[in-house]
Structure formats: C-alpha cells, structure tokens
Computed example of a mutant assay.
Amino acid sequence: MTPLIQAEQAVLGAVFLSPGQLDRLAPWLRPEHFYRPAHAATYAALLKLRADGHPAAQMQDTGPVPMSWLTDTVAEASKHTRGLTASYAHSLVSACPRPEHAAVYGRMVLEGAIHRSVAEHATRLHQAAHTDALRDGVEETVHHAHVLSNVLAELARRWGGKPRPVAPQASAAPPPVHPQPVNERLLADEEFLLGCLSARPQKLDDVVGWLHPGDFTDSGHQQIYRSLGALHHRGEPIDQLTVLWETQRRGALANGTLDTERVLRICDRNSLAGSAEYLGEQVVQASLVRTAAASARQVRALADDESLAPGRLIGYALHALGPLDDVRRRLRLANDAEPETGRPTNQSGAPPPAARIDAARSRSRLTNAIPVTTPPAASCPTVPDRAHRRSPA
C-alpha cells in the first residue's frame, strides 16, 4: 500500500472519529482529490451529511460520536460506488494514527492530486500536439496549453501559493529527448520561405518581428535565417554570396551544418515568388506544435517525480511552459499582421534607422586589418617607361 492510499484512509478515519475536522478540510479538500473511487465517494458522503445537518457533524467533538455517523455515511456513499461496507469503514477508523492530524493527512491527499492532475493535463497536451502535427493544425494544441496553464494557476492557489515560474535546479536531470519524424513537406516550406526572403529581402521587414531562427526545424535553415537577419539588421545587401559569406563567418560551413552548394541552391534568386508571410506563419505553427510536445514531456516528467513538493512542481511546470507561451505570443502577432504588408498593426513598418545600421556595421568591421597604402607614382614606373628603359638586344 502506497503512502498516498494510507493518507486517504487516515483522513477519512479522522473524520469518522472527529466529525468537527470537516470544518477544517471542507474549504480546500474536495472528493475529486482522492485517488480511490471508494474514498472519493466516502468523502463526498461525509460532506453531504454535514451540509444536511447531520447531528454528529454538529457535535464539534464534544462527546462520543454516534454510530449513525458511520452507518449513514456508508449508506450514502454506496449510492455512488460499489463494494463499500461497514467493515471497510471500520478499517478506515483503525488506519488513522491521530484524528487531530486530519489537516496534515488532507494535505498529503491534495499533494497526490496535484501530481496526478498535472500529469493528466500534460498528457492531454502531448496528445493534442501529436494530433495537430498529423493534420497541420494548432487549435487543439493551443486549447490544451491554455487549459494546462489555468490548471497550474488554480492548483497553486489551492495549495496556498502564487503561480510563478521557477527555473529548476541545475542538478535536476533533463527529461529524455525523443527524436521526432522528419516532415518533408515542412522542410520544403522552410526552404521555399528562405528562397523568397533571399530573392526579396524587403520581406524580412514583415516577418522578423515574429519569426525566430528556432522556429525552423532544420539546423541549417536556422543558420541561413540567422544570416539573413544579420545582413538585414546591418543594412547590407542580400544575395547568394553575401548569405554564403555570413554563414561561413558564423561557422556553419566549418562544423558541417551547411555546405556551399546547399546555401547557393536555397538562396537562388531565380526561386519562384511566394508569400513570405504565409510561409512564415506555417513555420511558426509547426514550431508551436513541436514546442508544445517538448514542454508536455518535460511537465509530465516533473509530475512523475514524487519527491517534488507541489509548490516546486507547479513553479517548474510553469517555467517549462515558458517557451510555448513565447511561440503562442508570436503566432498571435503573425495572425494580427496586416494582410497587405504582413507587418503587425502596432508597428510603423518604417525602414531601420540609420544609427542602428551604422552601429551594426561597426560591430562587423575588421578592426585589426593591416592598412593598405598606395606607393608614390614616381616609385612605380609605368609599363611604357619600363619598355623604354629596356636595354637593346
């Protein structure tokens, strides 16, 4: 028998022995917090008898508890569950070490319920992300992410704290990484988007506010988009060669993430024109689904760790949902963009200020280069002079 089941038995036995304990438990402990259905039905019956004004519930522990308190509870609970007998109710009484510790036992029950609830909703989020990945949607994922955030906030308040994200300790082991199947259609969309942005660099103004490099599935695509963004930020020309040079400066060619032929192929100016805003939104949607699945696995791993206190579990889980919240925010920005320009309605769409471009370029200039000087004209004779001075054969 697990400690959680023993805690459920103890809290019910405490209420049988001391009905006044319900006044301390009823405001925050609910029947759905019990793991065993028989225990949930028994606690619900106790709450109903108390609400109906049962004489035992009014005694406030001033005398011996009448036997009707136990028998009436069993009779009421038996209407909603099967197999509950008076002998089992007596075993609950004997399972309670100290009736006056009922509130502590109730906190144990609530702690188990918090772990189960977080695990359940994390599993639902993961299933929704898997479904949306198959049908190229985000509706179910967004819905269950919102539900999980609300559940964590409600559990924090019920536990007596505030819903605040807390970064896990560095010593905490990260959850296992599960490789995801490669979506060839998504990879093709990413390449098409990068080709559009390379052919029409002005479109970067419309997507840089909500499309981030981490939204791309392929690491090589991430590096090309970073290079495009850097060139755009510095106000420098964008073409196949400048992008290739920027990826080289960032080490993407040296570490094997990209090769020259692939960069030139993706950044070909002869690529077919397309809607950068639409393709970018598709990339962000796929990123949201991927991030939701990863966050759900991390939250589920936290919920399965019984050593985590509820406050830490909730804080760590909210922290794990942080990347997902960021992608959700940026997807809303993409959806709110103007149809004609793709720019969010709260942005002016003006070109980058000259001061920013100059500062970005200054950070990119070579400061330790050897200066090249031009020798005086007299010391460098012209070709006709040399021919004139050639000695005769």
Rank of each mutant, 00 (worst) to 15 (best):
R329L: 09
N255H: 08
Y278W: 05
A296D: 01
A128I: 10
A173L: 12
R135K: 14
A296G: 08
D259V: 06
G311I: 02
I357N: 03
L333Q: 14
A378L: 08
C196A: 09
E154A: 12
R82L: 14
A393P: 09
F192M: 14
H115N: 05
R30W: 14
L279K: 00
N150V: 09
P168Q: 04
P163M: 04
A393T: 04
A77N: 03
P323R: 05
A122L: 07
P179K: 09
G274I: 03
Y43D: 00
G349A: 00
A57I: 06
A199P: 07
Y35H: 13
A95G: 02
A128S: 13
A7I: 07
R365M: 10
Q60N: 04
T367F: 10
L70R: 12
N335R: 15
H80N: 10
L70K: 07
P179N: 10
D326S: 12
V207D: 07
E340D: 13
P201K: 00
V166H: 07
H80V: 09
A113H: 15
V299L: 03
P37F: 05
Y88L: 11
L12H: 04
L125P: 08
S91L: 07
P352H: 11
G106A: 08
V166E: 12
V15M: 00
A156C: 12
A77M: 06
T382M: 01
P323K: 03
Q169I: 11
V299Y: 02
R330A: 01
V74D: 02
G195M: 03
H130R: 14
A75Q: 14
D326A: 10
Q240W: 06
V289K: 01
H232C: 01
A173H: 04
T373L: 15
F16S: 08
L333R: 13
L211N: 03
R234Q: 12
A129F: 06
A170I: 15
P371V: 14
A122T: 06
G160N: 13
E100I: 12
P179H: 10
E261N: 09
G235S: 06
L302G: 06
P66N: 04
V299Q: 06
S171L: 15
D239I: 07
R185S: 15
S287F: 00
A359F: 01
L92V: 01
